[in-house]
Each structure stands twice: as C-alpha cells, then as structure tokens.
Nucleic acid binder design. Structure first.
Lengths: 206, 206
DNA sequence: ACCGCACGCCGATCTTGATTTCCATTGTGC
DNA sequence: GCACAATGGAAATCAAGATCGGCGTGCGGT
C-alpha cells in the first residue's frame, strides 16, 4: 500500500537527499488521499517513518512542502503537453498526442494529478498561480497551433485552447474513474476525434 | 459591496425566512471570496449584521450552511442545462443552448459558480457527491442526445458528454476572467461551433 | 583498531485560530 | 406592566501546525 515497501525501520539514518525524496513521496500519498486541508503533518511524518521535526528540517512549513510537490507535477504536465505538440508537425497527430498526454498524466502512479486538477488550495495565491500556469501554458501552446491552422484571432484561439484543455482534463479524469469500460487508446482517440473535427471545420464554417 | 444594501441595522428583527435568506446571501459572499476554509463564521455573521449564535439557530454548523448553499447552486446549474436541452429539438440549437447555459451560469451575480466549480471541500464526501452530481447529470443529459444523434455506444457517449461539459465549464470560467476581450454571445457561439462540428462528424468519420 | 565530533533524529510541548456554546441584556407583543 | 424570545459579548473546547533540548549513531583522523 505504501510507496516505499521499506515501511518503517524507524531507526535508519538516511543521507539528506534520500530522506527528502522519501518525505516527498509520503507527502504525495497523504495529500492525494485527503487533499491539503485534511492532510496532517503528523500522518505524513508517520507514513515516512520519521518524526515531525524531521519534516520541518527539510521544508519550512506545510505550504512549502505542498508547493514543492505541486511544482513537480505542474512541470510534469506542461512538459508532457509540450513534448506531445513537438512530437510531430501534422496537426491532426498533434491533437491526438496532446489529448493522449492528459490521459497519460492522470494515469501516472499515485494519482498525483489530483494535486494539479483538484487542489483544495486554489484560493491561496501561490497555489492558484501554479495551477493556472498549467492551464494557461498548455492552452497557450495549443492556441498557437490553432491560430496557424485556422487563422482565428488571438483571443478566439485562446478561448478555444482553454476549452480543449478543459475537455481533455475533465474527460481524462472521468475515464480514470470508470476504469475498464473503455481502454485508454480508444478513449484518447474518441476525444481526439471530437477535438479535431471541431477545430478542423473552423475557418469558414457557419 | 454587500449583497443586501440594507447593510447593518444591527437591531432589526426579521421574520425567520427573511433572516435565513439574508444569512445565505452573506454566507455566499464570504464563501465565494475566500473559499470554505478561509471563511470565518464570525465574518459571515458580521456581514449579515447579526451575531454568531443567530447563525447557529438557522444552520447546524459551518458545513450545513455550506451544503445548503451548494445545493441551491448545483440545482440551479443542472436546471439551466436541462432547460437548455429542452428548449428545442434541433440538436445544433441544443448544443448552442447548453453551452450558453454554462456561460450564463458563471455570469450569475456573485460568482456563485465558484462554489460548484472550484470548491475547496471536494474531499469531504457530501460535497464531492453534490459537485459530481452537477457534472454527472449534465453529462448524462448530453450523452442521451449524443447517442440518439450519432449511435455511439453508451460508454462512448458518456465520455463525450463529460468532455463537452468540461470544455464548457473551463472555457466559461476562462471567458469570465478575460472579461471584455470577447462578448458573451461570440464566445458562446465559438465554443458551440467547436462542439457541434466535433460531434456532428461522428458516426462514420475515421 | 580507537576516539571524538557532528549531524540527524526523537518525545514532549507550546501556540494559534476557529468552531461552538453560555448567560446577562434588551426590546416587543399582549 | 410582564413574560418571552432573540441578541451580543465573551469564554470553553479542540485540533493541528510548529518548536525545543537532549540522545544516539556513523564517520574521519590518528
């Protein structure tokens, strides 16, 4: 059940970086399961097999710990999206790849996507900023492609980009909960077809 | 700034239902501004011009107050969506109307949509249940239409429905933040066209 | 192989902030 | 004029984040 099978040798001494990594893993488990507010520093420490003060020797406070984790996964998401769009120059393929990036992201071990897509701290400025960055940057990249392909105005392309990212995000999350009823490949292609048909008919369709 | 202009006649006696309504208004303001956790019962009471015990005579606790408010707006959202789909039998018009429902909903006074779309309590069971209901029911209605129109399987239609709802929700929220750059009508039609083109080309497009 | 140092670790505690409740007071309808 | 209900200020309660001083272990120098 725990990320590291070496659960609680509550006496082992670890080099600093190894310990830090272990703390991040434990924190991710707890934050993902309970969200930020319901997560207790006590439990994170216990899950990592250390005491609370150790936690505070590695991170300034609960928010700092959360942000470190959040940055990791926001970067991950944005990178996946960027690489998907760069993986080909055929725009139809690009749509397919980008949608796939979202489905891959939510499939990632530990359901870490919840930190980015379902954070219960969006009201706190630094968190909101990071979460919106993941949406904005993905949408920005996509809107670039849309502008080239359709000749929309910048504002319109941005709105479309945001909408498509939202579609991908929400459908990927839903697909994950109904696991088994539709294989990932099929789901990805289904949504990609929806998106592509929607975009491609744009420049002069009434 | 306050919802009720009659701000603080801190001595007026109100009939029970009027008082309750006033408390709900005040609570909505505070919950929307700060989210659930950062909202203080103190401030809600003060904003309504009463003292805390009064609040607890109308609602069992903070969560109960929040749920009462949430139910109101979840019902509102689902109803708007249902009425949009029932407003016509032409599926293209239906898409337009449904997307419009989301844009209308986020334009509602007080940005109350944040309670449904950006709740920081999704990890609490009764809240999660209600929030997901708004997504599920909207998506269910839409997937019905999609099934009739395209002959997709039920699973596929559901996934598409969820994706479209996600698209509408996220794009509507984004449109609201960038207020002014695109008029609501234009934004709605833009997203509706994207959705409609996407769906309509479905049954036999490879 | 031995000694001393430095560092990572722990149990117990402090502090803060928010929800929830209690009692004296004030104003109201009969 | 009187009983009653509602109100307000203040206090009890509680959970969780953050901290303090000492302990034990592994490592580098001799």
């Amino acid at each position: 059940m725990t990320a590291s099978p070496d659960a609680k040798p509550r006496g082992t001494r670890l080099p600093r970086m190894a310990r830090r990594r272990q703390l991040l893993d434990a924190a991710q488990e707890v934050f993902v399961e309970n969200g930020y507010h319901a997560a207790a520093m006590d439990e994170i420490a216990e899950r990592a097999g250390v005491s609370k003060p150790v936690l505070y020797q590695h991170f300034p406070n609960k928010l700092g710990l959360y942000l470190a984790l959040l940055d990791l996964h926001v970067d991950d998401m944005v990178t996946r999206c960027r690489e998907a769009l760069a993986s080909t120059t055929d725009n139809k393929q690009r749509v397919q790849a980008a949608i796939g990036a979202f489905f891959d992201f939510v499939s990632t071990q530990g359901e870490a996507f919840r930190l980015v897509f379902e954070s219960d701290l969006r009201n706190v400025a630094p968190v909101r900023q990071r979460v919106e960055r993941s949406l904005q940057e993905s949408a920005e990249m996509i809107s670039q492609v849309i502008q080239e392909d359709t000749g929309c105005s910048s504002d319109e392309a941005h709105l479309l980009g945001v909408g498509l990212v939202g579609m991908a995000e929400v459908s990927a999350r839903y697909w994950l909960t109904s696991d088994g009823s539709i294989p990932k490949e099929a789901a990805t292609q289904l949504m990609a077809r929806l998106a592509w048909r929607g975009i491609s008919g744009f420049p002069r369709t009434g």
